[in-house]
């Protein structure tokens, strides 16, 4: 195993790319650390890692010779959540551990995983609209309210996809999408007075597809596992998004003159 040990720089670069992709795809901190150290140990290296919201810092150390060590830092690019990537990279890390793959082989498989195309955006759009309509039903909204929420989500999520493609600031994006969704729901349910018995619920659930659920869950997991700094920064990030949602919503309430939600 030790005779063909790859150069420490190669290992370090691979591990950093791995960690950055996992973080960008939306994993909690301890899984990133576990996966990366699993790969390192298969090459006979040990790692110490610090993970922040925007950077990963890692020291790779030779397990038998402590003088051979390499520290490097890499930026985490903001990418969309991607659970397929997490699943596949996690599996790859076990295969490396069990099967001792070579660095070029891991590289090529890593590249293939990262470049796997996402689900078609139109399918996602339709499913999200259905989901939010079903969600409206869970909050005891009636059939008309569900229809209103479906339309509002369809349009607002389309805008969100377009803004994401143009790399808009995501706080701005959340304010705009929340405003559009609640404006459509508010206009149809209150102003034009389409026959729904539950206009409040239609308006209230129309923005719920924006709630950053996965970041919130990751934040709590990090806090519970003792990665307090990472957990806090995730929590604050998610809270800012929720404030943005509330801003968009209160803006439409103001425009439409609706007092009580």
């Amino acid at each position: 195993m030790t005779s063909t040990r790859p150069h420490i720089h190669e290992v370090s670069d691979l591990l950093l790319d791995f960690a950055v992709s996992l973080m960008g795809a939306g994993t909690h901190t301890s899984r990133v650390a576990r996966n990366v150290s699993r790969i390192a140990s298969s090459f006979g290296y040990g790692i110490d890692i610090i993970i922040f919201q925007k950077t990963v810092m890692m020291t790779v150390t030779h397990l038998e010779d402590n003088n051979v060590r390499h520290t490097s830092v890499k930026k985490i690019k903001p990418t969309a959540l991607n659970f397929s990537t997490i699943s596949e990279l996690s599996r790859l890390s076990w295969e490396v551990y069990d099967g001792h793959l070579s660095i070029p082989e891991i590289r090529s498989r890593y590249n293939r995983i990262v470049k796997t195309p996402r689900m078609s955006r139109w399918a996602v759009l339709g499913l999200v609209a259905c989901a939010n309509a079903a969600f409206c039903r869970l909050f005891t909204g009636d059939l008309v309210a569900m229809g209103i929420v479906f339309m509002a989500t369809l349009i607002a999520f389309y805008v969100r996809q377009e803004m994401m493609n143009r790399h808009a600031n995501h706080l701005v994006m959340f304010v705009v999408c929340s405003f559009i969704a609640s404006m459509i729901a508010g206009l149809t349910a209150f102003t034009w007075n389409i026959g729904t018995a539950t206009p409040q619920i239609a308006l209230g659930t129309s923005v719920l597809f924006l709630i950053p659920g996965v970041p919130l869950i990751n934040a709590i997991i990090d806090l519970l596992e003792g990665f307090v700094l990472a957990g806090t920064s995730r929590m604050i990030n998610a809270c800012m998004l929720i404030v943005a949602i509330a801003m968009g919503l209160s803006l439409s309430l103001l425009v439409l003159g609706i007092d009580k939600l």
Binding site: L81, R118, A123, L127, F209
Partner: peptide, 8 residues
């Protein structure tokens, strides 16, 4: 299902 497919 709908909220899940956002995170692919």
């Amino acid at each position: 299902i709908g909220f899940a497919v956002i995170s692919n």
